[in-house]
Simulated scan of single mutants.
Amino acid sequence: MVRVESWTPLEIEPEGIGGPEELVQRLEEMGPQELAGLLAEEKALVFRGFDVMAESLPALIALLLPGSSGWERRGAVDTVCRTETGRPGTTIWPVQKMSAAHAWPTRLVMYCDTAPLSGGESMVVDAARWLAALDPALSERLIPGVRYVRYFHDGSGFGERWQSTFRTDRREQVELLLDGTGDEWTWQADGGIQVSRILPATVRHPVTGTEVWFNQIHRWHPAGSGPQQTLSRILPEEKLPWNVTFADGSAIPGHVVSEICGLGFATAVDIPWSRGDLMVLDNISLAHGRRPFTGKRRICVAMSS
């Protein structure tokens, strides 16, 4: 087994005048290249004590996500913040943003507009450590990637109707849309459609070259940590709204998924939030989730390639 050093984010606090003005000044002095190098090395930077407010976000986002459109000053917070009220007592398992899609952001910025009364930490996992902790035989089995499978029903069932998802009621229009994605698709006898795609289970970081765990097996599999756990008790496998298999379509055993979850959970680092905190993290190096919380938790998220 490959040994990977334990990880914690780099925390940065005021040294001079304080406030968001100091943070803007320090980021400007650092410049995009130095910031990129520091982020690749540290994987996440947490800025505490700068009392960042909503009106400061556009300038900070422009510096932390160079090349992105940033946030519009008008309505900035409402555009990217959400007050989390659904199932605050549950854990959201760590995952890299959009790692089950054909393209994904490489960098995320998170801003705490409202801190919870208790809990609500961002649960972050070093993806290199996660991969290194896995059985080498499993890593080898996953070299061809994994197959993500979606089932869209025809109006009766769990999950989404294909008419709503593709915004059309014409099958030929759906086929035309899917033909341009590289996804595989099959119309079902009940009028639904199954769509699948093969994506990597691991990727190499574009800057460091480190191979990291980069998939959503534990979120899509019935034995994982998502809503599939409940649905799998009442639906046949082919009717599950989401599923994941090995690249060749063979099933991933439930005990393997439990092992993946357990090893990721064991290496998780909790990052607490206070109002005004700002964090930029590498979406390839790190998977992130959320601990249960009480009260209201309002976090803004922006991303860039």
Rank of each mutant, 00 (worst) to 15 (best):
H221Q: 05
G31R: 02
S68N: 07
T210K: 14
A137P: 00
F47N: 01
D154G: 06
R275G: 11
T165Q: 13
G67D: 09
S164N: 12
R74V: 13
F158R: 10
S68L: 03
G157C: 06
T83F: 02
S304V: 06
Q96D: 08
T186K: 13
S56I: 00
V109E: 01
D135W: 03
D169F: 05
E15Q: 14
R26H: 01
R48D: 05
L117W: 04
T181C: 02
T267N: 12
L138D: 08
D190N: 14
E140S: 14
I143F: 01
P66H: 05
G155I: 08
G86N: 12
S56G: 15
D126T: 03
V257N: 08
M110S: 12
G262W: 01
F47A: 03
L64N: 05
A76G: 12
E211L: 12
P144L: 09
G295H: 07
G264L: 11
I234W: 10
A59H: 09
V244I: 11
E42T: 08
P88G: 05
G192P: 11
D190I: 07
D270G: 13
L131P: 03
P88K: 07
I271V: 15
E22H: 07
H153G: 04
R291L: 12
P200I: 10
D248W: 10
S305A: 14
E5K: 13
S139R: 15
C81S: 13
Q216T: 07
R82T: 13
T230N: 02
D248A: 09
G67Y: 03
T91L: 12
V257I: 11
G67W: 03
R171S: 07
L27P: 04
G191C: 06
